[in-house]
Each structure stands twice: as structure tokens, then as C-alpha cells.
Amino acid sequence: MAAFHHISLLTKDSHENVRFYTEVLGMRFVKNTVNQDNHRMLHYYYGDYQGAPGSVVTFFIVPHLGHRYENKNFIATIGLKLPQNSLDYWKERFIHYSIDYTINDRQIHLFDPDQVEIILTETDLPPLALDHQVKNEVPVDKQILGLNSSQIHVNDPQATSDFFETFLGWTTIDQRIQLNATDFLEILPTETDKPSHMGRGSADHIAFAVTDDAALEALHQRAEKQGWQIEKIVSRGYFKSLYIREPGGNRMEFATLTPGFTIDEPLEKLGESFALPPFLANQREEIEANVYPEK
């Protein structure tokens, strides 16, 4: 079965971002690190207690970031799944925090501080396993389970659907790829040729889970053979990744399940210090000195 690994976006304000995802949504701040492609940019990760693949939302911190323009192609929405019988709790929580929301059946729609649409969907799933529960005020039987959905917006949905079908064997039915029993990806049409511009709340990529290095290398070889637009295959320390541009121009990542976030911090201390994977550790002084300053 297919599954999400994480989704990565851009934010302007690290403090607002941390407050919303940890205090309001109750996710754990599992990693404070750096964008490995631009060491001036901080990279924050949120997830369940383990930072397990499929639970993770990440943000690149870009102070003074401008408005985003979503036109020809873009990725939108963070869909998150809730355990059974938790919808009323979350409605009350958002009222407490004075956050506007709308209800659609078993879904709550709201926006984060960068105007990213968040969709919380109540499922029939049980709560998080004990070792994945975050230690905070959100009751353990109400905590967010992980990623549930996202949207790819493109000029030619058929070409993007064909990419997923040919490359991965994932079928699109009624604009939707059903990854597993609960999780799905939507492929939706745009109606302009005007270019999109990244800004506050833009999604940089969606990442899908791959079992291990061997499976990732097999994907890499298949992508080369089929002629897809490969950006790179690279170790991020916490996982190994293959980046491909789907035909509509959006970045897709395929990331391994291991080794995970405990390679540079113990599990109980995740997110408490500025972490660098081993291959960047000897550049710590330079990296820390050159991070983009915030206000």
C-alpha cells in the first residue's frame, strides 16, 4: 500500500508556525535543523512523538517571504486524520483559540497563520499507539494521527495522472488517487498559463514513503528508464530521497522510512536543540552564523 512520508512548505514566521502546529494542533516539534539545499534557511519538522513517516509536516523558515501566487501549478492543502469520536473536541479547541473554521460532514476546514488550508478528517481509526502519543494537553484519544490528503493542481491533470500510473501503478479515479484505506491525493485542473510564484504558505513538495534504499534505487532506475524529470537522489541523513518533477511541474519526493530522526538526537530530546545530521556536523559554526535573521 502507498503512503505519505511528509509534506514540506514555506513559512515567514517561525514563532507563529511553532505555536500553531505544536500549541494549537498538538503536534510534536521533532526537528530543528537546516535546509540542506540552502544552509541559511531553517527547517522545522512536526509530527507524532516518534516523528514517524506519514505523520510529518515540515516548514522552511524564510523571513520577509512575500505573498504566494498559485496559478499554473501548485500543491495545496494539508489533510490530517483524526481518530474516531474526536471531531467535537477539535471544534471546541478551535473556538477556544478563536480560529475560524467550517464543517463539512466529518471534516473541519481552517487555515494556518500562512493561510495554508488545513483539513482535519475524523476517521474510524483508533487513537495513536502509546509510543506515538505526544506528551501535551491534547487528550491521547483525540490527537492527530498523521497525514491524510493533499492536492496537486496542474494544467493537464491527465498527464500527471499518467505519470503516477506509469511510474508507480497508482490509478486516478474521479481526480483522486487512493493511496490506502484512508489517505488520498487529488489531481485538480488549473485554468491559467500564468506562472506560479512561491511565497508564504507555498508547498515545496509532497513526499511519499519508500521502504528502503534498495526500493528507492529501483525507483530511481525506473524513472531514468521511463524518462521522467529527475532532480536528484540524495541522502538527507534522516532518510534518503529521490526528487522528481511530475509533468505539471510540481516537485514529488520519494523518501525512505529509515534511519529516522534519532541519528543526531535521542528520542526523548527531539526538537530541543539545533540538530545537524552527521555529514553537516563539522559545519555547525558556519551554518549557525549565517542563518537568515528573523525580526
Rank of each mutant, 00 (worst) to 15 (best):
H5M: 03
I7Q: 06
I7F: 01
S8C: 07
K12L: 13
D13H: 13
E16Y: 02
F20W: 01
T22K: 13
V24W: 01
V30N: 02
V30A: 01
V30S: 07
K31D: 00
N32Q: 15
N32K: 01
T33N: 07
N35H: 07
Q36C: 12
D37M: 05
M41S: 11
Y44C: 03
Y44V: 03
Y45T: 02
Y46M: 09
V57G: 00
T58Q: 09
I61D: 07
R68V: 14
E70N: 11
E70T: 07
T77A: 01
P83M: 13
P83E: 11
N85S: 13
S86I: 10
S86H: 09
Y89W: 06
I95S: 12
I99F: 04
T102I: 10
I103S: 07
D105G: 00
I108D: 02
H109L: 15
D112R: 15
Q115A: 12
L120I: 04
L125V: 05
L125D: 01
P127L: 14
P127V: 09
L130V: 15
L130D: 05
D131H: 13
D131Y: 10
V138L: 10
Q143M: 14
V154N: 00
V154W: 00
P157Y: 08
A159R: 10
T160C: 10
F164S: 00
T166C: 05
W170E: 13
T172L: 06
Q175G: 00
R176D: 07
I177S: 03
L179I: 01
N180C: 06
N180H: 12
A181R: 15
D183V: 08
D183Q: 12
T190A: 11
T192R: 11
D193I: 02
S196Q: 04
S196M: 14
H197A: 13
G201K: 00
A207Y: 03
V210N: 08
V210H: 01
T211A: 15
D213Y: 07
L216P: 04
E217T: 13
L219R: 04
R222K: 14
R222A: 06
A223P: 03
K225A: 13
W228D: 00
I230S: 06
V234T: 14
S235N: 11
R236H: 15
G237P: 12
Y238A: 05
F239S: 00
L242W: 04
Y243C: 04
G248T: 02
G249Q: 05
N250C: 09
R251V: 11
R251Q: 08
T258Y: 15
G260K: 07
E265T: 14
P266M: 14
P266W: 12
K269A: 09
K269S: 03
L276V: 04
L276P: 01
L276F: 04
N282S: 10
N282R: 12
E285Q: 15
I287T: 04
N290Y: 09
V291T: 07
Y292D: 13
Y292K: 00
